[in-house]
Nucleic acid binder design. Sequence first.
DNA 1: GGGGGCTATGGGGGG
DNA 2: CATAGCCCCC
Length: 753
Amino acid sequence: MTDVGYSYLDELNDIQRQAATALDGPVMVIAGPGSGKTRVLTYRIAHMINLGVNPGNILSLTFTNKAAREMKDRIERVVGPKAQRVWAGTFHSLFARILRVEAHKIGYPNDFTIYDTDDTKSVITEIITQMNLDKKVYAPGVVRSRISAAKSNLITPKAYLANEELMAYDKMARRPLIHVIYEKYAAKCMRAGAMDFDDLLLQMFRLLYQNPDQVRDKYQMQFKYLMVDEFQDTNYLQYEILKLLTVYPGSKNNICIVGDDAQSIYSFRGATIENILQFENDFPDLQTYKLEQNYRSTQFIVEAANEVINHNKRQIQKKIWTDRIEGNKIKIIKASTETEEGKRVADTIIEQKNRHNLQNKEIAILYRTNGQSRIFEEQLRRHNILYRVYGGLSFYARKEVKDLIAYMRLTINDKDDEALKRVINYPRRGIGESTIENISKLADDNNMSMWEVLTKIDFNQRSRKSIGDFVQLIHAFKAKAAKSNAYEIADYIARNSGIIELLKADKSVEGLGRLENITSLLDGIKEFVDDDEIQVGEEMNTDKSLSTFLQTISLMTDADTKEENPDTVTLMSVHSAKGLEFKSVFVVGLEENLFPSFMALAEGNQVDEERRLFYVAITRAEELLCLTYAHSRYQYGNMRFNDPSRFLEEISDRNLDSIISIHKKPEFPEPKILGNFKPLGSKKPMLSVNVDDFVAANPNDIKPGMEVIHLKFGQGKVMSVDERLVASIVFDGLDENQEKRIMLQFAKLQIVT
DNA sequence: GGGGGCTATGGGGGG
DNA sequence: CATAGCCCCC
């Protein structure tokens, strides 16, 4: 292989290069932490494109949408803008995108709703109530996870009933009717034109499985090259979909899986390491590459990680090593209480920032449970250290936001019963619980949606008026939706549903906040509609329907949302930290019953997965690693005394800093200025252009060399316009020679010269 | 039918 | 400690 013209391959070591250039046939890459996996994945795709593979024929499945965007961004630096045509994203988001086109072929509307966990639980609760079952025994959360597990293993309600093992387990747990709930739940979702998260996979499977000629063929032809990152965290269903796409007569089996069994941490949602073993069976002629050199962490950290993971018996044989310096030994903080743990971590952060000149964004605090964030937030706030908490209640999970979104959902898909139940009496319009229950029952008895019941069945005089009003309201929304863009509909709904009025009446601080959230939501939709810029790593999105907006936000996690102040300390669960790296990492709450969690200890044989989780946690650190625990902490109301985590003992002394004894520090004085702590969601000011004099030009008139004015970015020069009518523009007011890509079909540009 | 206050209970990770 | 769910009163 000649290196001329392929300089990016020089950035890889031998084994990485072999993995990145083995394009044909099945490939398995076992990649230890920090082993340059992302680099291999990106250059592998770049290499394909350089050798003439059409980017649209590449399917690259990643664990988060953010990872996908970053990957495309990096590929673009090698092969240019066509990198954006690669199909890269999560299983859920890419399948949702395909289902938006194909869902009608399997009996769903293309504008299907995505039910979140709350919607799902609510449907299940309703079924349990209707069946007169004990809600204590049939806890909706438990039932939901049984159903989810069944779906993840391609077990239909009928197959569930026929499965002796599942039924025996349910009988033992005194829940023999889960299969009935499952069947009713599936029927209800179908009737509601709704898919839950598992359905995005399951219905994708059905689509491909049941339509071999029109659909499966098409996607087999389209996705000639498949790459799957974090394969150790895929479930059976996901793997079966991959096989439908890959295994067929004449197939070249161009599938590359990348993963690390030692980092498998999602078995609770159906992920199974068996997939890796099965892959070896299904593709016996596969080529295997092991990336064992760690470029991320210094020696003490790598050695400690090896010591820890070696306590697990079942493993794919590998030896992670590094040629980096020994670095700093791992620091242990032993605190008396969780409050002191928080203080000591905050103090240590300040010390590290001074001594090692660290920025906030180079530091992360990782915990086992999200509930642990609060104390660290308090302490960081005290010290005026900016931080951001991931994984908490996301913006779209807030009640008022969900309420408004429910109206939108119902307007787009009137079969969405969960949305209907949420808003039929909100704001209050005198349709009470018993009436709603009655409607729901009528819907079930007649196998129609609740909306159909409202529009087709006559009600007694008491509720007739209020129901009539509600039906009229939704009809008005639908009429508006037929002739307006997403923002106009949303704005109309917000103002005419009564939600804004209701919130305005609430003068409390919380009420004000809720109103602000509604405004932010509307702003967000406006931005979605108006956005004419193609961000780096983003594909050209020309579908600006409300329906698309709703689907996008259902699959968004707050790791995907943009951060406006980038220099913040990261607070997140170890699970969310997968794939990330930081110069300095604090792993906190290392106590028995917390990490490893009491659930894992109670269930038995889950300690190995907790250990893998701990392994993931410590391998996030590049140079500084600090492990902390508290002697006592409040858990559910009372003081608990837990022993230090067994994982601490698995690291030998030679990798540890001497244990620092507990010493009380004086209270840190309350800072005077807390002002620069800005809540998330506030908007940055836009460049001001006189809107009144503004006249947008016809897209076809924009030519390279012109000076133009953009409402958001100000004046700039058009550098080029491509065949998709995407212009590259350099704006005067912006940094460096940073070109913006603007979609002219949506652009608001005025020609100056 | 709606709101307020009290009691019991849960107890993890996420798309 | 939180908060969901329940009961009671308006």
